[in-house]
Design a protein around this nucleic acid. Structure first.
Lengths: 227, 227
DNA sequence: AGCCGGCTTTGACCCAGGTCAACTCGGCGT
DNA sequence: ACGCCGAGTTGACCTGGGTCAAAGCCGGCT
């Protein structure tokens, strides 16, 4: 763990900071530390007091909950350029609601939550930005709950596949799963076995072709028709 | 629908307003209108552009989503004194993510979202309050997702029962369901039939006694042991 | 090259809970 | 009082997807 320097591009990508003036930005940067995580290394655990929030620079992080019987549910998968754990800044009790673990070797930048909270009081703009973000997340969670309760496993998986289509691609979109299937399965609240079976079923129906971690969507309209 | 006057007690209960000064409060109150809803009457539907948020004065409101096959999932049940739909103030597209329908005859006070948003820019305190609230909701949703994915129907129902214990009661807590069982079932993502069966099962195990809408928790520790 | 360990897949089986249909019950209006 | 209606209950049945166990499969390491 060492003090981190961010490139201007990286900084620009952190939309949360775009409302800050020079001094404020400087204050945040002074709290920035780089943390290298090995695969399966844990960044924080649910319930821990939350003193930092994070920007993922490279690698992949999963945010997950554990039931007391040890079952794991991946709530969200974080990709490079995304920040996470900023929204708990305002918890009455400041502790993480989920755990975070590196899926692959990752580098995260940690920022001090207290400093950020102080800046928030000064910057109306950042405040608004954070609220918009939280609002978006809230809506995402509601959508997720609908998905879980109103739709079955195949539906959820197909939605996921369609979401992964790279923008602009029309013909035979190919999806490269950069994440272990078992993690995606958990994110979708599906057992790995079932995940595999559904993929098999869709392939048999000639809707997709599966090649290890590459999935080709042979018939996007056919997939849409399943929804 | 007529202009509404709120008692000081009611105003005090709206924690969102407690950061506002006299002028600001006055501005909000001027946008306050009272709406009477008959049972099953719809207040707003998912997707509608959101110009107001609400305070429930009496009755009960359910917030729910519909699948395109017409299945309904109750996301939240609102009780008197609670505000709802404030958190979407900051949606990039300002439309309601769920629908709202009166369960029983209800009176809601509507407030203007635009005026509130403007006040938010002036009142740091209210800003912070709203953020704290959104943060809490976000956490609640995550807990809900865990419940749905990590726990079964009996677990969810027992959790619900234990949550309903009136504060301070130790001996044989009685729970009066002020809400139709079918609505509670949907809130817990359980079918009415299953809901009824689980209640029957728990009664047979002498953990509870069911008398129409009154449930007596005969063995709280026994119930806790199921979790 | 050969082995090991972690994913992934496949098969067999099972069960929580959903679906469908019939029946009960309590409240309400006439 | 009666009949109706919607909510709740109960029974019979079914199935999506979870569980368990046994292979495959691939990539890294020695």
């Amino acid at each position: 763990m060492k003090h981190a320097t961010l490139t201007p591009e990286e900084l620009h990508a952190v939309y949360l900071f775009s409302g800050l003036n020079e001094n404020q930005l400087q204050a945040m940067l002074e709290t920035a530390y780089s943390i290298e995580l090995a695969p399966r290394e844990i960044l924080f655990e649910a319930g821990q007091s939350a003193g930092h929030f994070y920007l993922l620079r490279s690698g992949q992080i999963k945010l997950f909950s554990l039931s007391d019987s040890g079952d794991e549910k991946v709530v969200e998968i974080i990709y490079p350029g995304e920040t996470f754990a900023e929204a708990i800044t305002f918890m009455t009790q400041h502790n993480y609601p989920v755990s975070a673990e590196a899926i692959s070797a990752s580098e995260v930048i940690s920022f001090d939550m207290n400093v950020f909270r102080r800046l928030l009081e000064e910057s109306r703009e950042t405040c608004m930005r954070l609220m918009a973000d939280m609002s978006r997340r809230l809506r995402k969670r509601i959508a997720e709950i609908n998905n879980l309760t109103l739709h079955n496993a195949t539906y959820r998986l197909v939605v996921y596949l369609l979401e992964q289509i790279p923008p602009g691609v029309v013909e035979l979109p190919e999806i490269h799963l950069g994440t272990p299937k078992s993690v995606i399965a958990s994110r979708l609240s599906i057992q790995p076995e079932t995940f595999s079976r559904i993929l098999g079923k869709l392939a048999r129906q000639k809707l997709i072709r599966v090649h290890q971690n590459t999935i080709t969507l042979l018939d996007v309209d056919g997939l849409r028709a399943l929804l």
